Amino acid sequence: MGVLRIRKQIMWSDLPEHLMERILEFLPVDCFFRFRAVCKTWNTLFSSQHFNSIARNSHPFLILCPSNTQLPSLIYSFFTHTWRTISLSFIPHELHCPINFRGSASGQLLADISANFWFGYNSPTLFVCNPLTQTCSVLPEMASVSRIMGKAILPVGNKMDEYTVMVVGMSSTGTVVVEAYNSTTKAWKVADTIPDVVIRNENVFFFKGSLFGMTASGGIMAYNIEQGNTTIMAMPTADTHNLWARLVCCKSGVFVVGAIEENYCLQGVFMWKLVFEKMGEEDYKWEEIGKMPSSVCEEFRKSSNSNWFECVGVGDKICFRAHESMEILVYDVSKSSWNWLPMFPADLRYVSMRCLPLEIMPTTKFS
């Protein structure tokens, strides 16, 4: 037995680095950080440029978070095609209910707790948690924003514990401002004042240097962080008046998903991509990239008793989940194809479960 154990150790140590990286790719997402702590060699592999590239490009994850953090969350790996449960019970007890998960970046989840959960623009408690390292940081009060309209979390460089939280909101003087929180300085700073525009109280997305959000008047705001300028874009249209839309951002770009309903019944789903180019006085256009096939739409409609659904961008994919459904439909933007994910491993039909992408950035140094 001792000889066999020594032989196994020699076989592992003799493996070429690229094969070791390939083996480590198959680790479940919640094992990344535990295995990195084994030794400096393994940590170096996780921190290598090659593995970091693989983790970003080939390991998109979808996480489903319930508002009650005592219940398990679910993570789906598009690489291994499997669901796993992960706990968020490490979030402090006073932050437990209700929690609204708003975005993700660098393995971190941005969430808030609002006293006026259904109707208010009031400023909630913002916090950032990492389900892999089981850490949670409550952000300090903002310097100027008194009523939040939209929020996003952005990665900074390649370090998992560095991020920026951007908030668009109303100041006490009635102006709309953009305020940024830096995880390194642990402080808020007013980034800019933007034209009078009301953002719908939902996600704001970051893509190629700009924040995107849907306005209350039915348009889309694009705020360029570096230049400090704001563009209000018209929504794409379909040949129907019974259309409601969602803004989605993924690796491939910014999209609008439009749902057509009739008599409160889902009839069809269209998708448009935002294309940036000079067109006379305009520098953008909407390009229709696809429509949910009738057979798929019928199947999707049967997966829930409601016409409401959420959609989120993960890697090159757009994921659709109907209200309280255990089934998730995926549109692959790069392949223009539709498919269903495997069913959840348990009956977890949470009304307030939120789908979010979870990007893994295994670049924190070993200590």
Rank of each mutant, 00 (worst) to 15 (best):
M1K: 04
V3N: 11
I6L: 15
R7F: 13
M11E: 15
W12H: 03
W12K: 02
L15N: 07
E25G: 07
L27W: 09
P28I: 15
F33D: 12
R34A: 14
A37C: 13
V38I: 11
W42T: 06
L45P: 03
S47G: 15
H50T: 13
F51D: 01
I54Y: 14
H59Y: 13
P60W: 05
F61H: 15
L64Y: 08
P66D: 09
Q70C: 08
P72S: 12
L74R: 08
R84L: 14
L88T: 06
L88S: 04
P98V: 02
I99Q: 10
R102Y: 00
R102Q: 06
R102K: 09
A105V: 00
A115N: 12
N116E: 11
F117E: 11
L126D: 01
N130H: 03
T135Y: 06
T135N: 01
S137Q: 04
V138K: 09
V138I: 10
L139R: 09
P140I: 10
A143D: 00
I148A: 02
G150S: 07
S172N: 01
V178E: 00
V178K: 00
I194F: 14
N203Y: 08
V204F: 00
K208W: 01
T215C: 12
T215Y: 12
S217H: 10
G218K: 09
A222E: 03
Y223T: 01
Y223R: 06
I232R: 06
P236F: 07
H241W: 11
L247D: 06
C249R: 04
F255M: 10
V256T: 10
V256L: 08
V256R: 09
V256D: 05
A259K: 12
L266E: 09
L266Q: 10
V269R: 10
V269C: 12
F270H: 14
G290C: 08
K291M: 03
V296K: 01
E299D: 13
E299Q: 13
N305F: 04
E310L: 07
G313W: 04
G315A: 13
I318V: 05
C319S: 11
A322I: 09
E327K: 08
V330Q: 03
Y331L: 02
D332I: 03
W338Q: 07
M343D: 04
V351S: 04
V351T: 05
S352R: 09
S352I: 08
R354E: 09
